[in-house]
Design a protein around this nucleic acid. Sequence first.
DNA 1: ATTACTAAGCAGCGAGTAA
DNA 2: TTTACTCGCTGCTTAGTAA
Lengths: 219, 219
Amino acid sequence: MKPYLMQMLKELAMLGAMNNKIEVSSVELATQLETSQQTASRYLLELDKEGFIQREFGVKKQRISITDQGVDALEEEYSHYKQIFELKSKVRFKGIVVSGLGEGKYYTEQPGYRQQFKQLLSIDPYPGTFNVEIKPIEKNKLRLLKHYGGIDIKEFSTKNRSFGSALCFNATVNGVKGAIVLPRRSHYSNVIEVISHHYLRDTLQIKDGDVVDVIVFVQ
Amino acid sequence: MKPYLMQMLKELAMLGAMNNKIEVSSVELATQLETSQQTASRYLLELDKEGFIQREFGVKKQRISITDQGVDALEEEYSHYKQIFELKSKVRFKGIVVSGLGEGKYYTEQPGYRQQFKQLLSIDPYPGTFNVEIKPIEKNKLRLLKHYGGIDIKEFSTKNRSFGSALCFNATVNGVKGAIVLPRRSHYSNVIEVISHHYLRDTLQIKDGDVVDVIVFVQ
DNA sequence: ATTACTAAGCAGCGAGTAA
DNA sequence: TTTACTCGCTGCTTAGTAA
């Protein structure tokens, strides 16, 4: 939706058009938005055509109410601002499911990690990680997480090799509980590794390429 | 602020630029906003010039953070959505102070009204009403109030004449407590009459033509 | 790889006006 | 009064490209 239409829809909502039919003329709306009557009229036509508002005409003025679709649009916009100002304890990622190289299984099965996952995250991980690829731009959010702190998984060694430390956060994938694991000794990649008690591909009925919502909880 | 710049500022905020310097390229932002690299670049130049963001350049990408002024702009936008979705128990009016015809004094001094104001609103009104002229478009909000209910002031008669009923709401003018009085037998005018224990013109140090904020409380 | 300039094209704006 | 059309013009957008 074009930002200038959103602005007008917001204005209508502030005048009460979400609960009522409001009586307004295009001139009044134009004044409010500091634009011309013609532009206000055109905006209304567009909003109507796209199904965001409903209009009725009288002899004077018109009666406008916001449709369910319009309310949805407003709610989405509102949710963005809530993310910015309120839900600082949650960070959302949208990404697509990808296959790893199978190393996830190797790592999650190491008793040295598994023990800590159980103890610190209360997760007995299903063997293997669930990998979500995010857009490069969202790596900024990943970087943010480090500042917020998280749950520390300590490094350890077996007689064969050593395993590095990792930073973990409780998280959900499409609502299903799990945790994300960020290896400390590696640059941020654009893949988030998720562990969960469940085999997420089955639980969520999801395959490679599907879009998922990952919500990370910051304490 | 132009709506399309607001959209970009919001996008930056969602990526964490309010607390951090985020690393983004104009191409990434363009993808996010579904526009061209050139447009994203231009938006950033504008936001910078207007003082909403700060930029640093590296060899690759740029580091962007939102300034206090940018945060202010986002907060204002957020407050609009809060008004729409949350503060349904408050209705705000912005208007200018005007003089009445002096009838306010006549009415507020009628014992039949004064008694009810004291009892139902706990206000012993200063003689005279404080009149606030609102924009015609805001009459819609006034109409909304009727649906929400309010405090009913009953009609009464003296031996000389009869006085009509009115609908009242607790309210504040620039933060000072009072109530608004909407006569039932009259169409909505674009003037809100406010009663208060205080002589508002003095208390608020306000004169005709000044802009005031009226917040009406709906129970 | 970046950012951002120039130039051309086109979308949005608003004056004028009809209905 | 209204709303909304046409149309000329402005200003936003983007391809091309420099740095």
